[in-house]
Design a protein around this nucleic acid. Sequence first.
DNA 1: CGTCTGGTTGATACGACTCAAATTTGGTGG
DNA 2: CCACCAAATTTGAGTCGTATCAACCAGACG
Lengths: 236, 236
Amino acid sequence: MTHALAQRLDAFARISPYDETGIAQLTRVARVVPPRRAPVGEGERPNFVHVIVDGWACRYKSLPDGRRQIVAFLLPGDLCDLNVYILKQMDHGIAAITRLSVADIAPDDMDALTANHPRIAQALWRETLINQAVQREWTVNLGQRTASERIAHLLVELYLRLRTVGLARNESCDFPPTQNDLASAAGLTAVHVNRTLQELRRDGLIELERRRLTILDMRRLMDLAMFNPNYLHLHR
Amino acid sequence: MTHALAQRLDAFARISPYDETGIAQLTRVARVVPPRRAPVGEGERPNFVHVIVDGWACRYKSLPDGRRQIVAFLLPGDLCDLNVYILKQMDHGIAAITRLSVADIAPDDMDALTANHPRIAQALWRETLINQAVQREWTVNLGQRTASERIAHLLVELYLRLRTVGLARNESCDFPPTQNDLASAAGLTAVHVNRTLQELRRDGLIELERRRLTILDMRRLMDLAMFNPNYLHLHR
DNA sequence: CGTCTGGTTGATACGACTCAAATTTGGTGG
DNA sequence: CCACCAAATTTGAGTCGTATCAACCAGACG
């Protein structure tokens, strides 16, 4: 089984077996984080770069009055904090959605990796830019789309991202976030997410139960979401 | 008058006079773009990196049915498309809000600049990460805040960003975007932005007329917006 | 078996949108 | 300098999407 991070990077620039070995070595030792816990302490200035090896996490920001927005979902192969590698402090929190397995990479090892593997360095830089593009699309999602369009968009995005790391096929994938999680990612209430999901089910677009998502009609779901995959830059 | 881009970068990492000269040379020749026009063709694969020398622009994404979301405001010193430098295609558009003066930097010159000025290279990398943080905060803004909180947050952010490039002081700055622009940045209708601005004025928080913004009570405006400046990473 | 988390349902309230029109502002040309 | 026009702002009335509040239900787990 090839590593999720390698698959992720390979999706954009060819990663050689040699490169892949380099990645595999750094992510060999993984630590387990229980659900709802933070793999990275908030506000802390971390000394390691964290890679999600298995499981789902999210990046979130909270307002002083308790409101909470999930600003990104982190899937296997995602880096938690390339940013803090350079910036002084974490401006948001990270929480595990499922049980998580995380690899901690020391800055020195990271530097060595990018120095010895220029393709990886470039792929990481791309990764960063693509994350930015995803964040922009989320801005559009929250600013312009209605509840059902938003949820539809989120589901399609997550399905496609899972597929590029080999965690989805046949329009179907594990889908651990609760309706509460979806709500705080979509800027809706959990109640409304619930009704919206029912609507999508009723219209024969999706199946979603027991933490498993199946997209029954990809074409119509994408149309509803006005989903344009170009922002994911999935071509090689 | 020192250059906006230099000021911007200097806000995060000390830029030497030598570095500043390098920047000044690349941005000496500027091109003028009239309002509402695009300094960079949409969909095109640009051969140049564009820097806003003077004026305001915005980054936007449109949906097939015509809805349009401004995902970022570009102020003097901002780079339009460091991203496309690496990614294959532009996944969004750029439009001038005011008359714009733009410097086009050839990739080779860009490479030379970062090679000869490591501080600049690092500062540019930071810039990228901060833009990402800003985009995350916009996600929170659209997902969690009410209309008046959103507008308040937007105004404070823009004021602070202008201040770091020397374009604002005494809680006052030029403010060219129309209520329509604010609406499509805040995910609201222009009508509602109008009423929201009136509310902010009525409460003695701001003055805004003839394209000039004055923040009358910064403390209360920031409280209303639940504004936490840490995401701008303004410290050095 | 009781407890807890997540999902579901119903009734009601409200923030923001829509549509439509009036008014003001700013730019342009005579 | 004024007349004109288009763009931007303002106002009002009515509607709708989503939030709120409050139960209730199902399954997981200790």
